[in-house]
């Protein structure tokens, strides 16, 4: 794959994900994360992944300060930082 595409694709995916996250309401995000949780678990059988996505769903479902903080984080984070933090969160004990 050409080098410029190797760099551009992750940036596009991240930008798309951030746009999706910020344009949806908290309730809509909670619904979509719950759906994603079921699909992800059905495909992978990974309980840890199920719990992580479930936590995200719960944060947006409760529509409290944590949801607002999460939105602020996504608004300001750049791709590299976000990827590193997501990798960190997905690392099991």
């Amino acid at each position: 794959m050409p080098r410029f595409l190797q760099k551009a694709i992750p940036n596009l995916i991240f930008a798309g994900f951030r746009w999706w996250l910020l344009i949806n309401s908290n309730r809509s995000l909670a619904f979509q994360f719950k759906l994603a949780q079921r699909v992800a678990f059905a495909i992978t059988g990974d309980r840890f992944l199920k719990n992580v996505i479930g936590e995200l769903a719960e944060i947006f479902e409760q529509e409290g300060k944590e949801a607002e903080t999460a939105r602020n984080l996504f608004r300001q984070a750049d791709r590299e930082y976000s990827a590193a933090i997501v990798r960190s969160f997905l690392q099991e004990d």
Binding site: F48, V52, E55, I59, S88, F89, Q91, D93
Partner: peptide, 9 residues
């Protein structure tokens, strides 16, 4: 990076 899992909330 690294370390144990801490709930997102």
């Amino acid at each position: 990076a690294g370390g144990w899992w801490v709930p997102l909330k």
